[in-house]
Design a protein around this nucleic acid. Structure first.
Lengths: 139, 139
DNA sequence: TTCTACATTATAATAGTTCTAAACTGTTGA
DNA sequence: TCAACAGTTTAGAACTATTATAATGTAGAA
């Protein structure tokens, strides 16, 4: 929930030039109370709904990757024909409804911390992601 | 670690015709002490190393999907440009080494059971998968 | 053996993503 | 202020994993 000049500051401070495409994408992604999940395809649709200036597909890909690298977006590991991203970058896990093909946040308070009692020498843990697959309960 | 006639039995008992392609793929996948992870691409290479009879790419895809549906293989949820499969179908989780792009099993004894204290009405949990991303520790 | 449903195959088609290289633009410094 | 340049955008081509197609082959039953 920032205004444009705040997005400009945010972009500049992370070494990204505040172009009008990036500012527009910031608005679409971050100008909401609720965080959400999206695919590139869905993001393109949201963008075209909210502006008349078309942003090219390549730019959307570039920007999403740039934002992901800067930590403004997270990619959700899931087997799918397309990549899912999350504007919620705080620590949390997901349900994946295989019937509806729908991702749902799990409140972090509802997951006991995952304890991994082993390590790989020379490697440090970057993230721990839990994916809970669910399906219709026809019992 | 089965011989061919046991694969034939295994296939037949799960309603899959024991064709020579499927038997060969069984050998490549299951004739080892250690379980392993693979992509379709890697599997095709393993197959062509172990036989002179070429198996078409479409058949490899069909067979892997059939085996996955029968529970002989598991697909590992990971963000990648290609799908990863696991011949270890017992309950366990994974490290993913982002530097080496390498998947490593985590012994199930090394992970405290993941407790999810919330449910989605009308849905039942199908699986809970933990992916621990690691990277080189340059500290 | 013969029939039929299931499998295999080569190839085409599809779809998500990345690449390319030319045009454009934000920023810096004179 | 403005030129220069590095970073950015763009359309479209290229790439790659995967799925679809439809003709041919084959296992298993009768």
């Amino acid at each position: 929930m920032l205004n444009n000049s705040q997005y400009i500051e945010k972009l500049r401070s992370s070494g990204l030039r505040p172009t009008k495409q990036r500012i527009k994408i910031c608005e679409v992604l971050f100008n909401t109370q609720k965080t959400f999940h999206f695919t590139i395809n869905e993001l393109v649709k949201r963008i075209s709904k909210s502006t008349n200036d078309k942003i090219s597909l390549a730019t959307v890909y570039n920007t999403v990757h740039a934002f992901k690298n800067k930590g403004y977006l997270k990619e959700i590991p899931i087997n799918s024909d397309q990549s899912y991203f999350d504007t919620n970058t705080s620590h949390h896990h997901h349900f994946y409804d295989e019937t509806q093909k729908d991702l749902i946040d799990i409140d972090d308070a509802d997951v006991e911390p995952v304890k991994i009692n082993t390590r790989i020498p020379g490697k440090k843990i970057k993230s721990v992601e839990v994916l809970v697959k669910v399906e219709d309960d026809k019992s």
